[in-house]
């Protein structure tokens, strides 16, 4: 048996031992917590929407923007006071998936890289974590948009 094969067997034997002993992530409990916290954040969003529709003459179609902006403001504030990350260990995806998580990923990098200056630090790193969301969303939207244009034949002025 070659050295290579021996090493491979050793690695496989080790990985078996390691995966048997390491504690598993408490997936079920994490999902329950994510459900309740995530659901709760959406209810807050619904309350904010309802509030804006009642008091500020927004309608179903236009209320999205101010609602999202308000949630982002709250999330950035909580990030600044250093409490958002304390919730997250408990709630996992419950605080990461709502738009508040997107805002947290931007605010936390902005605050963290302040020591490297406002241009290269804050400006250059703000999208370090959030950037991939924007890139993949934009590329996906572009591809879907192209398919839609081809399908409907609306080429426009070309």
């Amino acid at each position: 048996m070659s050295q290579e094969n021996g090493d491979q067997m050793e690695k496989e034997a080790y990985q078996k031992v390691a995966s048997r002993i390491e504690p598993k992530r408490p997936m079920l409990m994490n999902c329950v917590k994510a459900f309740f916290v995530g659901g709760f954040i959406c209810v807050i969003g619904q309350c904010i929407s309802t509030f804006y529709m009642h008091f500020f003459h927004f309608n179903e179609a236009t209320v999205g923007a101010p609602t999202v902006a308000t949630l982002i403001f709250i999330s950035v504030l909580l990030t600044g006071f250093g409490v958002y990350d304390k919730f997250s260990q408990f709630s996992g995806a419950g605080t990461a998936v709502p738009v508040t998580g997107f805002a947290n990923s931007m605010a936390s990098t902005a605050i963290e890289y302040k020591t490297e200056g406002f241009v290269l630090g804050v400006g250059g790193n703000m999208f370090k974590l959030a950037g991939s969301v924007i890139v993949f969303g934009t590329v996906a939207a572009f591809i879907i948009g192209i398919i839609y244009t081809i399908a409907t034949g609306q080429w426009g002025a070309m």
Binding site: M27, C42, A93, G94, G101, S132
Partner: peptide, 25 residues
């Protein structure tokens, strides 16, 4: 519905071991 979408995210992170960035994207 909001809670369930978060559960999908949690399953991607815990079950598929994706990073938060991969999950959100």
């Amino acid at each position: 519905v909001g809670g369930l979408i978060c559960v999908v995210g949690q399953l991607m992170m815990d079950g598929l071991k994706l990073t938060p960035a991969h999950t959100m994207a």
